[in-house]
Structures are given as structure tokens and as C-alpha cells.
Design a binder for these strands. Sequence first.
DNA 1: AGCATATTTAGAATGATTCTAATTCCTTGT
DNA 2: ACAAGGAATTAGAATCATTCTAAATATGCT
Lengths: 142, 142
Amino acid sequence: MVSNSDSSGALAQRLSDSGLRSTPQREVIYSVLLKKRDHPTAEDVFARAKPEMPMISLATVYNCLETLVQCNLVRAVNFERGPTRYCPNLRPHAHFHDEQTGATHDIDLPAGVLDQVKSVLPVNFDAASVEIIFRGKARTET
Amino acid sequence: MVSNSDSSGALAQRLSDSGLRSTPQREVIYSVLLKKRDHPTAEDVFARAKPEMPMISLATVYNCLETLVQCNLVRAVNFERGPTRYCPNLRPHAHFHDEQTGATHDIDLPAGVLDQVKSVLPVNFDAASVEIIFRGKARTET
DNA sequence: AGCATATTTAGAATGATTCTAATTCCTTGT
DNA sequence: ACAAGGAATTAGAATCATTCTAAATATGCT
């Protein structure tokens, strides 16, 4: 059987690259993330996956999300100690956390900005990754 | 009685500015943070405060740390969902999280870098704060 | 001194996540 | 097709950091 979409094909590919299996649960979790990119929590994902797959368990949602993060198909994002949120945006981007609404917005980072930021590091610090989080309020037009 | 040091004087001042009281517990917690600036967790602070004040409770440590954060004398720092760490460094700085050792290093930010970073935001986003976290490994010379 | 309010305290409760152990589901070798 | 072995899923228990609760203490003020 041929993959039914680019994204699930990509998922199957990434999984097998890592020696992991493509499963219905992983497909559903990933499709849920792609469908509504509002940085859902594991509980959110659980709720959205259930209609499609009523027997899925919360533990599986956690397992699958962890797997997707390992495969670099999804980024985990944390604000303070709130529940982890998941984001399928793979471009380099920062996050803007709206303190009024709780909404999270992706802020694409122009090439070079990350390098500029990394340039503040003393030579003996070797950064594998940089995370930038903005907090404030956003005027999203009505 | 006159304050016994600049820092506790500063603490008493900041507290009363916010309509809060200076208490022995708050003084001890703050002095613990100033004494060893290694980004301790609440449990770490609790352990370090106990010798000086054996009856202090963990709940009080949480309360006092929260109070100090409210007064802007201390910053709370989070890495993923690990326990919150506390940092009395008030200069604008980023954090470098060493993935091998778990150590956290302050990275002072030259004036202007935060503005450069903020400049990537679309006009309708108004950032009250920016947080920058590096992850990687640090060669701290022996 | 007496009162109102802040603060501290111990322990219970919470919430997100991880762990455990049992089951189910493939995949591969025969 | 069939069995073995490993991978994945599942329900529920366990964990961990933190917050809440209610009672006890301390403090500042009139």
C-alpha cells in the first residue's frame, strides 16, 4: 500500500530511518499536530485523537509525541512549568507567548539572527541549540 | 536595628516598597541565593537554609522565592520541565545549559542584542520580556 | 495591651509526566 | 502458514515539583 499523503509518507520514512515502526497511533498523533498548529498539550492531542481512535491511551500519546520529537518532526516547547506543548513547525523560529490569552505564536527567525545571538557566547561555550521566547501581548486583528 | 549588609538592606527596601515585610526567612533565603550563585532549585535552597534556620519549611522556601521573584530581586529559570532554578543576577543575561553536567551559566548580553532580537517581531507583537536559552557543552578550564 | 493582617508551617492535594507489567501487534526466519 | 522475539500499546500506579489548606505565630499599629 502506498502512503496516502506526503506527511504520513515523511513520517514513515523518518521513523524507519530511526529504526522505528510506523503505527496507526503515530500517524494519528502526527496528523493531529499538522491539522491544528496551535501548540497543543499532550492532553489536547489526546482529546483530538480520540474521535479518530477511541481506544488510544494517554500514555500512548505521550509515547508518540516523544517519538516524534526524537525523529525531529516535532518540537517540544515549554513555558515556565506549564504542560509541554508540541509544534510541527520545523523552520528555525522563536515563540511568542501571549500572557493575556495564553496563545503561542511562531516567530520565524531570519537567517543570521541565530548566529548573531550565538556570537555573544564566550569561545569556550559550544551551543547545539538556541531557544528564544518572547512574552507579552499580541494584537491579533479581528 | 540597622541592616547588617547592603544586600539585606536592599531586600528590606524592596520588600517594603511592595508592601511586604522583611522576615528572617526571607533574609536567609535571599542570602543563600547570593552566597552560591549556581542556580539552585527550591530543594537546594531548602537544604542550604536549614543549617542556619532548622525549623524553616519547604513551603516557606517556595513562598519566599516567589516573593523575591515578585520583587524583581531574583529571576526564576526553567529548563524543559525540570525544577525551577533561581538566579539573583539582575543584569540582562541569557542562560547556557550544559547538557553533560547539568550546570547553568549566565551569559551577559551586550546592550543592543535584546533589541536586535526584538526587531524580528512583527509590529503587532509587543514583547515585555525576551528569554534566551543556549544548550550545549561548555569547556570550563581546569 | 489588643486587633487585624501577614507570614510561616505541616501536611494534603494537584497536575503533568513517567513507570510498570501485561497484552497485543508486527516482522522475520523456517 | 507458523512460531519466536522484539516493538508498541495500554491501564493504572507511581513520581516529582509545586500549590493549596487550615491552623498556629508573629508583627505592626492604634
